[in-house]
């Protein structure tokens, strides 16, 4: 993540969370936190507890984030933010906490007599991790049409690339089809889809991990070969080695939700994908 990208990330984050950006240059931005964001980011539970108990007037803090420190003007005091700095991790964490569940409608108002029909989609943005003594993650964005069961891949990018206008409330003169598939069965189908896909993938990584484990186990056995009664250490070591290399796959949902979209979106994707 480049410094410029971090800068715009911070700006978007604080604007979206209702914090006032008091000052902004190319190199830094000064933000007046809201009470909510202060509680989330500043880690001062005692202060907030005290204010709430005494009914005092809260004074949320103001922070300056320096995003370009190659040309840092020495007059500016603030926190230097880079990828990997604890503050940015904390903001990432806050964003994930607040951005988990969505429901939006395509902004296609109809007119009287010609109402827009919106189709329900269930979208899951997934992180798939292959874990042994090493690790690799994949991102997948899958969405199922809850009327006809079609599953569309790379859904999130398609939404954002096409700039589909989205609003939190159903637009005027529009109606939604009620889903034939319930959301929970949508989730189940997407999971099955992912599972099938994982099964088809190359898993030499797991085989290799098991080979490494076997090698270590063999050495351990040879070390205690001549010991009649194996000491406890042998069994402890064995268990540790087992766990160190044990391959597993986890699938976690980063975020997702319901999108009500017009026929247009469906047609765009019809040809390529079918579940």
């Amino acid at each position: 993540m480049q410094q410029m990208e971090i800068h715009s990330y911070l700006k978007q984050f604080f604007m979206t969370t209702g914090c006032e950006i008091e000052k902004e240059t190319e190199d830094y931005l000064t933000v007046q936190l809201t009470c909510e964001m202060d509680k989330m980011l500043m880690n001062r539970p005692f202060y907030w507890h005290y204010i709430e108990k005494t009914g005092g007037i809260p004074e949320p803090q103001k922070i300056t984030f320096i995003t370009n420190f190659s040309t840092e003007k020495n007059s500016v005091k603030g926190e230097r933010i880079h990828f990997g700095s604890p503050r940015l991790q904390q903001i990432f964490h806050a964003a994930k906490k607040m951005g988990g569940f969505i429901r939006l409608y395509e902004n296609q108002p109809g007119r009287e007599g010609k109402h827009t029909a919106l189709y329900p989609w269930l979208c899951l943005n997934l992180k798939i991790s292959y874990i042994c003594d090493r690790r690799k993650d994949f991102f997948r964005s899958l969405s199922m049409n809850l009327i006809n069961g079609m599953i569309v891949d790379d859904f999130h990018r398609k939404l954002t690339d096409k700039n589909v206008p989205l609003v939190p409330k159903i637009p005027d003169f529009a109606f939604t089809f009620s889903p034939l598939f319930k959301p929970e069965s949508g989730i189940r189908r997407i999971k099955q889809f992912v599972e099938q896909e994982i099964l088809r993938d190359d898993h030499s990584w797991a085989t290799e991990a098991r080979k490494r484990r076997k090698k270590d186990m063999k050495l351990l056995d040879s070390f205690f070969e001549h010991t009649e009664e194996k000491p406890e250490r042998y069994f402890v070591e064995k268990e540790v080695i087992f766990n160190q290399y044990e391959p597993k796959i986890t699938v976690s949902i980063i975020n997702g939700g319901l999108f009500y979209l017009s026929q247009k979106f469906l047609q765009m994707n019809k040809k390529k994908y079918n579940s």
């Binding site: 990330y9 964003a95 951005g99």
Partner: peptide, 24 residues
């Protein structure tokens, strides 16, 4: 509800994507 804001939803996704491990 309650439902997330579209911007925050995107920021959350962006954060998670940056934190992913692309290779063994």
């Amino acid at each position: 509800g309650p439902w997330s804001d579209w911007n925050i939803y995107n920021l959350a996704l962006k954060a998670e994507k940056h934190l992913m491990i692309p290779s063994f």
